[in-house]
Design a protein around this nucleic acid. Structure first.
Lengths: 192, 192
DNA sequence: ATTTGTCTTGAACAATCGTTCTAGACTCTC
DNA sequence: GAGAGTCTAGAACGATTGTTCAAGACAAAT
């Protein structure tokens, strides 16, 4: 029974995730992944498979974190605040180190979803999941009384999803705080 | 004064645009561009410069078409309808040949804008231009009486821009007509 | 008809791509 | 300590990347 793996699989995968998130799939070479993970070429292939498989693993890791985030927001905050915090969560990466990476899933949606069925499924499921989250929050907010009665949860949820996707596009391409704040305010105005 | 160019520069550039639009910058090789334009490697370089310069030329060509489209909508249609038609214009490529390419500028926003200042400027200007278009349309619609009085043009325009960007993300990643129609209806509900 | 100068052509460039393979290093079991 | 088996290390694979170059093809000017 010889020898465990010498590197932290999760930590290495997270490093790879950061690289893919920052530069995208095509623009990130295996050499860069070897460098940034600190894991040798052979070990990378032995552990995760080829580049595409490594990317999908990273995408799943990101998606799991997203799922946990939504659960936490749903449990901790009143519905309207939970919705607002989802938007804000994509702005935090903005000030951390100056790099504007936006949402990894949305970046992937535009780069790969159109040509890769498996990736499209992951992206679509994540988007649907966010939409469902919004729908639950709107319903819940209406019950609590701080979201207007005339708002239809299903319609508002779809609209909020689109606003969120547009928001993360702007985070990556035009990260001006005033613009992002304006978009967020207008998106939430839907609930009044 | 010897010899004009033997191929149609505009036609070749349009072919290149289609390729970049479909697959993105990194995933489109010079070999593919040679094949799909029908123009020889050397001529491609002599005419447009390197790959990045060719891409930027294609981006400008697309951006000019977008600008003409907005002008036409602004001249021909009542404001609310003009706004709606901007959204719909990104759905047409959907049914034409089944390929869902979305918006070339938005695809580029996520792939390259974060790491290339010149491209970021083109993208940002285009986004600003659409926002300004929306603002004019909202103002105009309020004056005409078919957009509600309480709507603030600047805020609504930013919100519409985000909704549009989200819309085109969905066109490329989850092109279900019902979903897109729902997003569009909800975006326009802002104006009631 | 020769010259002139741009255009086209396709081979060729070095560099990098994703991937594989062969040694050697190491930890465990017997 | 010998053997077994998985891990690491880095060279090496052929293919493809973006780009350049030298030679030939062509239309206009002399």
């Amino acid at each position: 029974m010889p020898w465990e793996k010498q590197f932290d699989k999760q930590a290495a995968l997270d490093k790879a995730l950061q690289a893919f998130w920052t530069r995208g799939y095509e623009a990130t070479s295996m050499q860069e992944l070897v460098d940034c993970t600190g894991v040798n070429r052979g070990s990378l292939y032995a552990t995760y498979g080829d580049k595409r498989a490594l990317f999908i693993s990273a995408l799943h890791m990101y998606d799991d974190a997203r799922r946990r985030m939504l659960s936490e927001f749903e449990a901790r905050y009143p519905p309207r605040d939970a919705i607002r915090r989802v938007f804000l969560s994509f702005m935090t990466g903005l000030t951390e180190d100056g790099s504007n990476r936006g949402c990894f899933i949305t970046n992937t949606a535009l780069e790969l979803a159109a040509h890769d069925a498996e990736i499209r499924d992951i992206v679509a499921t994540a988007q649907q999941d966010v939409e469902d989250f919004f729908k639950r929050m709107v319903k819940c907010g209406k019950a609590a009384g701080n979201i207007a009665d005339h708002v239809k949860p299903a319609d508002a949820a779809r609209g909020l999803l689109a606003s969120l996707l547009g928001f993360v596009v702007l985070v990556r391409s035009r990260p001006e705080p005033a613009l992002l704040q304006g978009v967020l305010s207008d998106a939430l105005r839907r609930l009044d």
